[in-house]
Amino acid sequence: MWNLLQIELFKISKRPRTYIAFAAIFAIVAIFQFAFKADGQSYMDLVLQSVKDSFELDKSKAINGYFMCYIILNTLLIQVPILVALIAADSISGEANMGTLRLLISKPISRTQLILVKFAAATIFTIFLLLWMAITALFMSLLVFGADDMLIFRVKGEESQIMQITKDDIMWRYFAAFGYATVALTVIAALSLFLSIFAENSIGPIIATVCIVIVCTIISNISVPIIDKNVKPFLFTSYLVGWKGFFYIATNAEGVPIKGSLENWPAIRKSLFILIGHILVIVWASIAVFNRKDILS
């Protein structure tokens, strides 16, 4: 199994398209950092426009490395599924397209093993992608913008909130958030892998994955009670942004944040379980479908 995984990772590492994802992340992060370095004030003015008459804030301190990473992740984590799909959706379909799938299947490896190895490789790719994001979006931002307390602007139900987390209480939240994001993106990897079983080139499954993510995300963001109650809990995309839960700090009765706390850990834990459940079901389905599939490519 380890031998197969090494082979799989070797193949991924030799493909030019693997590095597209890393380059894309770097480019997006760098553009963000440049834009905020040049004109972060406008962004702050925008988010704070309704209270700008009541409060004064040192905006240059508010736009710090921690805040930047949050802003970047907020945007980037919507696009990263595409990058994960780029590799994961190629898992089986790419081999079918190249004609190597029939050779793989005629080797003394079970199809179950092959799916598990492909899934493991896609997961490792996802982890590397997130590590790269951590390096660029978090550590590079800290280098460029420095560290300070972090402001979280959030809409909770009917009301908007501004939460402040002190700078010594942030790093562990990012580790947890990146961990959570890994699980969330692994669902995408599993989904792409599943779809790639049915196709003979990777374009179809990439587009299908992206479409599913976009459609579900749109539905997840429609605020209609009937959808909120009956549809959203069943969409995995509702849980993709759960990493933010690690930045929702609990407050005491006076509204003062409690250091080291989470507002709703049970909700995050539940989301994690739901995502892991998705992964298990999708990988199981992939194995079941792939084992019954006639390889005609």
């Binding site: 029939r102 299947i105 005629s106 019954r292 006639d294 390889i295 005609l296």
Partner: peptide, 8 residues
């Protein structure tokens, strides 16, 4: 392909 288990 059946000899090589590609097809059942």
């Amino acid at each position: 392909r059946m000899l090589l288990t590609l097809i059942a």
